[in-house]
Write a protein that binds this DNA or RNA. Structure first.
Lengths: 223, 223
DNA sequence: TGAAGTTTGTCGGAGTTCCGACCTTCGTCA
DNA sequence: TGACGAAGGTCGGAACTCCGACAAACTTCA
């Protein structure tokens, strides 16, 4: 049991805003781990919905979470977040209702951190606060990157840029074309056409729900 | 002199991440004010450029700062920031080179905060760190909002949304149509046409470098 | 006051994207 | 194994945006 806690704490220390100049102490990590509760969520369920009271935030441990906002008729996907991401902290710290909904896309394990326990903890342990800050700013940087991509004119440019950013360590992207289209604010058909062109250029190979990057230079040129 | 310092500190306390549950103490505010130096920058000069070493960050006291990134041939505007905004903290805390350039759009007064003084200060005063965190997350929220706007399909929708967000307390927006186009990733002509349509609907009135919001409902409907 | 630079307004052709519709292919789960 | 749902692929017309060019209106500064 103590070993499991240690492992969990070590994972947290790795996850939250990596920096070489702010080493997180074992006590800090354990305190944070103990402040939260681990939840299992099934595919399709919500962590929270737009407008709910923001009593807690979540750290994703496994699986994918989609952050979206109702927008007139449909929905706009704000972000898709994987392990080590913090969700819902904006609303929680600002003490306002959640302004996005968070839906679990796959079976997911999350750490739920309640506001009343996190705030005193961070005030007590400045290093945790700093790490959290660095982590939030990294998220801000990623979102700025997304803004720039969305300002690219053609769908081909957007797709190429997205693929470069979202590739995993094996040079693969695991997203359906419909999901890519939602992230890019484009239609599924246009994404399909862009991928077809990249495939013709030898930039990528496509298969079911998987895109493999073959030639990064081709993508960079298209982006 | 002491009075000026007090005033400066009070301004900082108001600027950095307002929250009702984290009151910044006078000592905190003064410590932060003394950690930095006030700079006067002329129109068109740079606070920093893409790739520079990030030794410091800046808090805008007066004027407008444009954050942009070179993007192939042209440039992409990441954000336009007014008083009370923090600039350059992402790169500084991450200990990496600046990834955007910051250019002063008008005569500007900024507070320059060096890394070597800010980091120990925040570690020493958790409340400052928390306020900085909340401020950063507010910036993240604004950027997410921008992402959603950029995903809106037509230029008309984008323009209407931007006007609603960027209006000041008098219901006016002080941006040239070219600046709006840059923020939206659209052409100046399209922005002009969208504004013309909003003007025809009685939503706005336009004049030189100034747009006055007349009917918020019209804008909301168009957005 | 006058000139230079910036901003706004407008036009038409070219290019891109969206939309609805349809079929095929692939996974999954009973 | 077989059926169902999800994802990929394609087509043509309609709508929107971009681009280059140009003129008029407005600021600013000498």
């Amino acid at each position: 049991m103590a070993a499991a806690l240690d492992q969990h704490a070590a994972w947290l220390a790795r996850s939250l805003g990596r920096t070489h100049y702010l080493p997180m102490s074992r006590e800090d990590a354990i305190a944070l781990a103990q402040a939260g509760t681990v939840l299992e969520k099934y595919k399709g369920t919500h962590l929270f919905r737009e407008g709910d009271r923001a009593d807690a935030c979540f750290i994703v441990r496994e699986g994918e979470v989609e952050l979206y906002r109702a927008c007139g008729e449909g929905k706009s996907v704000v972000a898709r977040l994987g392990p080590s991401s913090v969700v819902g902290d904006i609303a929680m710290f600002s003490d306002r209702p959640y302004l996005s909904s968070a839906r679990v896309m796959t079976g997911t394990q999350v750490l739920r951190l309640e506001r009343d326990r996190v705030v005193p903890l961070l005030l007590e342990r400045p290093l945790l606060a700093m790490r959290w800050l660095v982590n939030g700013l990294a998220q801000l940087e990623a979102t700025q990157q997304r803004v720039i991509r969305l300002m690219n004119r053609t769908v081909l440019e957007k797709v190429a840029g997205l693929l470069l950013d979202e590739q995993d360590t094996f040079g693969e992207v695991h997203l359906s074309q419909a999901a890519i289209a939602e992230l890019l604010g484009a239609s599924r058909q246009s994404v399909n056409e862009a991928l077809a062109r990249l495939r013709a250029n030898g930039g990528v190979a496509t298969s079911y729900r998987r895109i493999t990057l073959l030639d990064v230079d081709v993508l960079a040129a298209a982006s």
